[in-house]
Amino acid sequence: MNSHSNRAMVKADLISRLHDALLIQILSLIPLPDAQRTRILSKRWKNLWALLPILHLVMPFCWTAEEINRFHDLVDQALDLPGNIPIQRFYLYCSKNCSYDRVSGWLRKVVQCKVQELELRFPADRFAFRLCWDLFKTCTTLVKSDLRCPVLEELFVERQLLNGLFDNMDTFEVISTSLKTLRISFALCVNENLRVAISAPNLEYLRVLDFMSSHYSLTKPSALTEAHINVEQAYPGPQIVRCLTSVKILTLNHRTLMSLSQFYGVYIPKFPKVVKFVIEIKASSGWRVLLVLLNKMPNLEDITFSDGFYPGTHARALNESWNPPAEVPACLRCKMKEIIIDNQETVSPEQFELIRYLLNSADKLESLTMNARTINTKMREQVLNLYRSSKSCRIQFV
């Protein structure tokens, strides 16, 4: 009996004598509550669980206030580390009765601990939780975040440059079957390697303002009806646009058009449902892409040039880049009802010819509206006197 006890003690001592790093790695393989219980084994084990770089916290369904407070205290103890020991990964699953004020405090703590990966999950019966991204603006170590809520319908994410500091996030991922509205604003950050992945099959509305991401992965949402895309780099434009075939309303800015101009022969799909199209053109390549897009939108009824036809100082570039096609796009000839030209300073001779082409080609056009602010009386009269293929077309200056 004594011999058996001695052998057990020797084995226990051998384990306890292992290096801290190895013991912590062992503890990281078991649930946190079990790891926490090892503190009663001996003085050697008392504080090891608190050094875990990976915190995996799952709140069970709690019937009593005592059970709720027990979980809250467990998280407090796990994060009450001297010297803000770095946290590699923080996973938190909250049940219905979790104190969401405490959650905000925990997030502030993990940011102070230089968290690298963050994953939050909320229950289906929790309808609202405000996650303030300001918490993470000063976190230069976060490389991956994952927020999951089974009833989430609307999400707005904005990242900004703060005090000249850049963040190190390399992946932003959205996974939701309930999400209907998604707005992304990554306009003031600089990180050419950010990857964005969106899996939201029931998405209905998408707005992207992104000057930093180099790659987009978008699961094609069949319910998507409206999309507004403004991206800076070359690849995200085609990667997003090719997944928008179900939309009825589409906006593309000039940067997105420039990215499409590099790949439009392969990447631009058909948009059979688009009836309203808003386009911003600031480069000659935009006009070439426009012709391709018009031939991909057979049911287009309303087109808006959000920044006029082209800056007046580049009228020659317009003349060089706009070549009327041999065949009028079907949507312009048979479907187009309204053309709006916004922010047009005046009308140059080259732009006048483009207006003539549109009026002469659109058989069903009902109105052409311009807000040319400095157009002279003579040019105004020339535009008003242009031939219109549609006898019911009205020309308006506003």
Rank of each mutant, 00 (worst) to 15 (best):
Q351I: 10
I341N: 00
F156T: 15
S217G: 12
D167R: 05
L120I: 14
K180M: 07
K337S: 03
L293K: 02
V289T: 08
I281M: 03
E353H: 07
H56P: 00
L260H: 04
L182D: 08
T219W: 11
S185Q: 10
H4G: 05
L218K: 13
A330Y: 08
D363S: 15
R242C: 15
A283I: 01
P269S: 10
L290P: 04
I40F: 13
I395P: 04
P325M: 11
T313W: 06
S99E: 10
P150N: 14
L365F: 00
L300T: 02
L22V: 14
L179G: 05
K273R: 15
A50N: 00
A21R: 09
S176Y: 03
G265I: 12
L41F: 08
A330V: 13
L41N: 10
I281H: 02
R39V: 04
K296C: 15
H56C: 14
F172A: 04
Q382V: 13
L359R: 06
V347M: 15
T171E: 12
I341L: 02
L386P: 08
S321I: 08
L252D: 06
R89F: 01
L48D: 00
S321R: 09
T38H: 03
A283K: 05
L260S: 03
N97F: 14
G312V: 07
G312P: 01
Q344V: 00
L51E: 05
K144G: 02
P325F: 11
L368F: 08
L224Q: 11
E67W: 13
E226W: 03
S16C: 06
C331K: 02
M370D: 03
Q344D: 01
S42H: 06
R126K: 10
V143E: 09
S99L: 11
D146I: 10
L74P: 05
